[in-house]
Computed example of a mutant assay.
Amino acid sequence: MSPGALMVELGGERLILLPQKAAFWPRERMLVIADIHFGKAAAFRSWGIPVPKGTTSENLDALDELILLTGAQHLLFLGDFLHARAAHAAGTQAAMLAWRRKNCELILTLVRGNHDKHAGDPAAQLGIDLVDEPYTVGPFSFCHHPDVDAPGYVLAGHVHPVYVLATRFDALRLPCFIAGPRRMILPSFGAFTGGHALRPAPDERVWVSSGEAVHSVR
């Protein structure tokens, strides 16, 4: 398992929170990813905004690393797989299809998010099972939006949560997992996605990722 990972119990099941901003469900050998936003940089460039290239390759390399570390057989995306219609650009699609050919045995499931509805479904050649929220497996209901009424313990994305660690002199924004009695919100996985600072409720727990380890902060 990944160094720096942290095991927690949610919904009566063990989940492993990974410093690479993902969660792994060992019983199902399922890797859960929120908000990867393929094609976001390409969308910005199509609007004339100069941003770096290479984010698609960076995201795919990060997925490969986690698949190797966890031995995952099922990769589940909690929405916003594609950022916008620009994600269908030839270069982005070619990279994703080449990655899929290398990982042809992997089960892929996408719970559609708000960006997916605007961008359109991924290419059929990627072999992704497309579902709507809530998508329930065992005790978990996989969603994009955290506030969906669902029968199981909700694992969701959408918010891109970060937690601010502050002193009198400085502050640090770190991606975080935030969990309450009925749901956990995962940090955004994508390389070019930003974050939104959340104020946790009294009954919520927070784990931050330093990039190297997951730490409990409350």
Rank of each mutant, 00 (worst) to 15 (best):
L82K: 04
F77E: 04
E204P: 01
E204K: 05
L110K: 04
G190D: 06
V131I: 09
P52W: 12
H83T: 10
R29C: 07
D129L: 06
E28C: 06
P3S: 13
P200Y: 12
T193M: 10
R85I: 11
R183P: 01
R183V: 07
E65H: 14
A89L: 13
H145C: 09
L63Y: 04
A197T: 11
R182Q: 13
S210N: 03
P50F: 11
P3E: 11
L174V: 00
I67W: 05
G4M: 05
G4R: 03
V217P: 06
K53Q: 15
H215V: 12
F24M: 06
A42G: 07
S216W: 05
R183H: 13
L174N: 00
M96P: 06
Q125M: 07
S141R: 02
P200T: 09
A5D: 08
H115V: 04
L18E: 04
L172R: 09
L126M: 14
E28I: 01
F24N: 03
F169M: 01
L172K: 05
T55Y: 14
S210T: 15
L76H: 01
A123D: 15
R27T: 13
P139R: 12
V8E: 07
R85V: 13
G157S: 03
H158E: 03
R205W: 04
V51L: 14
I67H: 08
K117C: 10
C176F: 00
A119D: 05
T92H: 14
V206K: 02
L174H: 01
K117A: 13
A62Q: 08
A42S: 15
G190R: 04
R218Q: 03
R199E: 12
R205C: 07
R218D: 00
A197H: 12
V131D: 03
A94N: 11
A197E: 15
R182H: 10
G180L: 04
L15M: 11
H158R: 04
R112W: 08
A150G: 08
W207G: 01
D170M: 02
L82T: 00
C143F: 05
M1Y: 12
E28Q: 15
P181S: 10
P202F: 06
W25K: 05
I107M: 11
D147L: 13
Y153L: 05
G195K: 08
P151S: 12
D170S: 10
C143T: 10
H115N: 13
